[in-house]
């Protein structure tokens, strides 16, 4: 699982927006979804598409600076670390990304 997976061109992800990467059924049968974000400065981040608060889809949130705000109850999550911004508490799992030649890669390990 240490391999980089090529997922999209950077322009497939809207600036200040996100795309969902659907990994199909994971072991537990639960659909495994990862949100890939692109900031206003074209940085790319990835994390589990599940808010640590009540499981809201982070991919549907508004991206501002290096944060995304969950659409359900407004938790702000740091895209780089997955940590909720204080005073809220919680952490979403993050994944490594890289952009090479306009292609976005994701690593699941």
């Amino acid at each position: 699982m240490n391999d980089w997976i090529e997922i999209a061109k950077i322009d497939d992800i809207p600036r200040q927006g996100s795309r969902v990467v659907d990994l199909g059924k994971a072991d537990g049968g639960e659909v495994n979804r990862i949100a890939v974000f692109r900031t206003v400065n074209d940085e790319v981040f990835a994390m589990k598409d599940k808010c640590p608060h009540r499981g809201g889809p982070l991919s549907e949130g508004i991206v501002h600076g290096g944060l995304v705000t969950c659409p359900l109850h407004g938790f702000k999550i740091d895209l780089a670390t997955g940590e909720a911004v204080l005073p809220d508490k919680g952490c979403a799992r993050t994944y490594a990304t890289k952009v090479e030649g306009g292609q976005v890669f994701l690593r699941l390990a």
């Binding site: 795309r19 969902v20 990467v21 659907d22 990994l23 199909g24 890939v36």
Partner: peptide, 11 residues
């Protein structure tokens, strides 16, 4: 269309 279509990858 990007809003509604996920990127499908088989892991």
């Amino acid at each position: 269309a990007h809003e509604f279509n996920p990127i499908r990858v088989s892991a």
